[in-house]
Structure formats: C-alpha cells, structure tokens
C-alpha cells in the first residue's frame, strides 16, 4: 500500500468514488425526494434544485396523507412503533434462547448436536412463503394470528439461526481452558458462563444481535400475511402509499428515511463490533 505510484493512487481514488457514488446515490436521491412534493419529483427533466418542504414528514407524523383526491388516514407512526417493538422483542427473545444454545453447541458435543444445529440453520433455507401458508392456518386455530406474540415467534425463524451460528463460532474461539481456569478457582459452571464466556464473546453477540435486528426490521412477508394493519411494521405499512390517486413518492421517500434511520444509526454506532464479530465468528466458526 505504501509503495503506490501517483497514477495508482489517482486510479484508486476514482474507483472508490465510483463505488461510493453507485451505492450512495439511491439513498441520496431518496433523501432529496423526501423534501419534495410529487410534482417536483415527477417533473422532466429531474433537477437537483427545488424548494424544500417538510410536508411529507408532517403528514407522516400527523397521519394525514394529502393526495390530489383528498386526505387519507395513514398509520405510519404506528407502523414505525410496531417495527421497533417487533424487532427489539424478536432479537431479545432470540438472544435469550440462542446464546445459551450456541454455548451448548460450542462446548458440548453430544449425539446429534450437529444435526440439531443444522436443522436450526435450515430454517433460513426454507422459502418463507412455503412456511407461511400452513403457519397461517395453525396460527388461526390457536389464536396467534394478528398478535405481537405470534409475529415475534415467527420472527425467530429469521433471528434465532443467525444468532446461534454466529455466536457459536465466537464461543468456539474462546479457549475452554480459560473457563476451566475460572471453574477450578472456585466458580460454578453458570458463573463461568456469565463471567467469562459471555463477556469474551461480547463483540460476537453484539454483532449477531445487530444483524438479526436489521433482518427482522427489513422483514416484509411474515407480517404481510400474518398481521392486519394495526400490527404491521413499516415495511408492510409502506404499501399504504400506493393510493387510488397514484403513488405518493414524496411520502414514500420520507417514510424510507424515517424507517432506515434507526437501523442506520445502530449500524454506524456498532460498525466496529459488526466487522469484528462477523469476521471472527462466522468465518472461523
């Protein structure tokens, strides 16, 4: 790296700029759109110059969607709340169940342990729709359709395997002797798990939790099928912007900005853990 010639450095700079532009442009354009009305968005040719307006944000927050045909009620803020609730609870449940399970799979090789771990991973392979249809019927029978508990349960299909497999790799990286040393110094098995294994696997657990949160947040199809309007997250709620009088691009853009803000903030904050956790846990494990 230090011995790059000037030309190489320039080329590298150009390449990096292109990549950044390619990935960032849609986000940047959406950000601009969120401050425009449908008219300025749809004008031809499109322009970077416009008079910014906060109307999209205010209508989302107040729940009044202004269209050419009149005003519509939308529940965007409720959806946003649902997204937070569903994602946070799903990840919490998956951590409570998945971390001890990952520890067990990492430390104790028992008959069938690999099979069970693989079965849990295989939940990720199944096409969600295939799982959803029978699940809808069962959920209806036991009264779990259109409930938060039912949704959080189904979200475990996304979160649990992810947490289990990433965290397991992380636990496997910790030398068992460190735990033995702690146990022989006069501590129980459970104290060792709490005081040694958990803190040492901390970055991995944080990374897995974060990733599970992002996946849960972005889920669409489970909530679309299993929940009605008042339980739906933003991903499904965004469908409300496709109205009889056209697609409300400005509001969609504002909704996107609002709905990616929490995950973006979380990801930026925990970027270091994410990279470290994923590279150590997933690759080595």
């Amino acid at each position: 790296m230090e011995h790059m010639s000037l030309t190489e450095r320039i080329l590298r700079g150009i390449a990096l700029t292109l990549v950044v532009l390619f990935f960032m442009f849609p986000l940047f354009w959406i950000f601009l759109m969120s401050f425009q009305t449908n008219e300025t968005i749809l004008r031809i040719p499109p322009s970077l110059f416009f008079e910014p307006t906060l109307i999209n944000y205010t209508s989302l927050i107040t729940g009044e969607l202004q269209t050419q045909a009149g005003s519509l009620k939308i529940e965007f803020m409720k959806n946003l709340g649902n997204s937070v609730l569903l994602s946070v609870c799903s990840v919490a449940v998956a951590l409570v169940l998945g971390v001890p399970a990952a520890y067990a799979f990492a430390r104790h090789k028992f008959r069938g342990s690999e099979d069970i771990a693989f079965t849990l991973l295989s939940f990720r392979f199944a096409p969600p729709l295939l799982v959803l249809l029978p699940l809808t019927i069962y959920f209806r029978q036991i009264g779990l359709d259109n409930t938060y508990i039912g949704l959080i349960w189904v979200y475990q299909l996304i979160c649990l395997p992810l947490i289990l497999w990433i965290v397991r790799g992380y636990f496997e990286d910790i030398s068992p002797d460190i735990e033995y040393a702690y146990r022989i110094a006069g501590h129980s098995w459970f104290a060792t798990f709490r005081k040694i294994a958990l803190p040492l696997a901390g970055p991995g657990i944080a990374a897995a939790g974060l990733l599970a949160f992002i996946f849960a947040w972005n889920n669409f199809v489970f909530a679309l099928v299993l929940a009605s309007a008042d339980k739906q997250p933003v991903t499904v709620g965004a469908l409300a912007f496709v109205t009889a009088s056209g697609i409300q691009y400005g509001q969609i853009a504002a909704a996107i900005v609002l709905s990616i803000a929490p995950t973006l903030a979380l990801a930026l904050y925990a970027q270091r853990y994410l990279v470290e956790g994923l590279s150590l846990g997933a690759v080595k494990g």
């Binding site: 030398s175 002797d177 460190i178 033995y180 040393a181 146990r183 022989i184 006069g186 040492l200």
Partner: peptide, 30 residues
C-alpha cells in the same frame, strides 16, 4: 464432584489467563 468442589489448582499449558484482567489480578484471582 464438579471442579469447584475439588480444591485443586492448575496451571494450563495454553496459559488461559483472563484477558480483561492484568497479570496481578490474574494471579490474585482465586
């Protein structure tokens, strides 16, 4: 008996020091 009840001390081949503690705290731990 579990290790905790055996009253045995051990030095490990792979050292197995507690990473978040310094050398003094490691030695003094028990």
């Amino acid at each position: 008996l579990p290790p905790v009840k055996r009253n045995v001390a051990m030095a490990f081949e792979g050292y197995s020091l507690y990473p978040p503690l310094n050398v003094r705290e490691n030695i003094a731990f028990a």
